[in-house]
Design a binder for these strands. Structure first.
Lengths: 212, 212
DNA sequence: TACCAATCTGGTAGCGACTATCACTGAGGT
DNA sequence: ACCTCAGTGATAGTCGCTACCAGATTGGTA
C-alpha cells in the first residue's frame, strides 16, 4: 500500500470534519451553545447525527479540538534541562503559540485567527466548554511533566514539576482570556509572556525585548 | 416570624441533603461514578429522583459541593494589601485549608477528613468531576480577584491579579492531588505551601518553620 | 475487469441526565 | 381551626450519547 494510506479517503474525511466544525462554531455563536443541538449541527453540515459523533466524540469537542498540546510537549522535550522549570515550560508555551498564530505584524487577524477567536469566546462563555477545556489543560500538564523528562522516581521532583506546569498553564489560560477580551488585537505570545511574568516575576521568565 | 426562619424545616432539609450526599459518595466509590445512576442514589437514600435534583442541581454536585471558596475569599479581603499578590493569595489558601481540615497532630484522619478524601479521589479519577471542579476553581479565581480589591479600573492590574490567582489555585490543585495520593497522610496545608514554593520560589512564599 | 476488504455512512433502539408541569403533604404563623 | 407555602413525588418529554446492524464507496488484488 502507498505511504499516505489513502490520500483521497483522508482528504474527504478531513474535509467533512472541517465542514462540521465550521457549521458547529457558527451555529453555537449565532444561537448559543446550549440552544443548539447536535442534530442542528448535523443538518446544517448536511450529514447525519451519527456522522457528527463519528468525527467528534462529544459535543464539546466540536469547539475544543486542537493539536496545541502535542506542539508544547515536543518543544519541552527538546529544551535544555539546565534552565529552571518555569522558564522551560514558559518558553515552550510562548513559542508554540507563536507557531500557531504565526504572526502577522499587528493588524487584522487571519481567517484562521478569527476562527480561533470565535472558538475561544465560546469556550470562555460556556460553562461546559470551559470545564472541559480546563480538564484538557490538566491532561496537557501531565504530558508536560512527562516531557520534562526529570527523574520520575523522585516523588518530590515530580511534585515540583507538576506544581510548576500547572501554574504555567493557568497563567497561559489567563492570557487566552485576556486575548479574547481584546478581540485578538494584542499579540498572544506577548500576552502569555506578560502573564507568566506577572505570576512568577519578571526575572524568572526572561522577558522578550519589550521588558521594562 | 422568628429569627431562624424555620428551624425544623431547615434542619430536615440539611439532614436529607447530607444523607443523599453520603449515599452518593459511598455508591460512587463502590461502583464507580459513571456506573451509578442518580436513581440508584435516590433509592439508596430513600427519596425520589426528583428530590435529589432539588437538592443537587447536577450529578457532579453530589460530590463537589463545598463552601471552601467563600472562606478563601473572605480571608483574602481581610489580608493586608501591602504584601505581594502571590503571598496574599497563598497565605489565604493555606490558612483556610488549615481551618477546614483543622489539624490533628499527624495521625489518622477524622471522619470528616475521610469523607473529604473520598470526594477528592472521585474528583481526581472521574473526568466529568475533575472538569467541573477545575471550572469551580476558575469561578473561585474571579472571586479572589474581586476580594483582592485592587484597582479594578486598571486593566493591567486586573490582568496581574488574574494571572497570580490562577497560578496559585493551580498549585493548590497540585497539592490536593498529591495529598490524595498520600491517602491524606501528609498535612494538606504544608503540601499547599510546598507546591506554592515549588512554583514561585521559596522566597516569594514565606515558608512555614520547616523551610530549608 | 471483477472481486474482496476496509472504511465511511445512515437508521433504529435504547440508556441516562435533566426539565417542566401538576398534584399532594405537612409545617409555621394568624 | 385555617391558610400559605416549601418540600416532595409522579409523569412525560428533550437531548447527549452508545450499541447494533445494514448499505455504500474506495483501494488494492486476482
Amino acid at each position: 500500500m502507498p505511504d499516505q494510506q489513502s490520500t483521497l479517503r483522508a482528504q474527504r474525511r478531513a474535509e467533512t470534519q472541517r465542514a462540521i466544525q465550521a457549521h458547529a462554531v457558527r451555529l453555537f455563536t449565532e444561537r448559543g451553545y446550549d440552544a443548539t443541538t447536535v442534530n442542528d449541527v448535523a443538518e446544517a453540515a448536511g450529514v447525519s447525527p451519527m456522522t457528527v459523533y463519528r468525527h467528534f466524540p462529544t459535543k464539546e469537542d466540536l469547539v475544543l479540538i486542537d493539536q496545541h498540546g502535542q506542539l508544547v510537549a515536543d518543544r519541552i522535550a527538546a529544551s535544555p534541562a539546565t534552565q529552571p522549570l518555569v522558564r522551560r515550560i514558559g518558553a515552550a508555551l510562548v513559542e508554540s503559540t507563536t507557531t500557531l498564530t504565526d504572526g502577522r505584524g499587528g493588524g487584522d487577524l487571519s481567517a484562521n485567527g478569527q476562527f480561533l477567536l470565535a472558538r475561544l469566546r465560546l469556550m470562555i462563555a460556556t460553562p461546559a466548554l470551559r470545564a472541559k477545556h480546563l480538564d484538557n489543560n490538566y491532561a496537557l500538564q501531565q504530558a508536560i511533566v512527562t516531557a520534562l523528562g526529570d527523574d520520575t522516581t523522585d516523588p518530590d521532583a515530580a511534585f515540583h514539576a507538576h506544581a510548576a506546569a500547572s501554574a504555567c498553564l493557568a497563567a497561559m489560560h489567563t492570557a487566552l482570556v485576556r486575548w479574547a477580551e481584546d478581540d485578538g488585537r494584542s499579540e498572544l505570545p506577548d500576552l502569555i509572556a506578560k502573564a507568566l511574568a506577572a505570576a512568577f516575576g519578571d526575572d524568572v521568565v526572561q522577558a522578550r525585548p519589550d521588558a521594562p
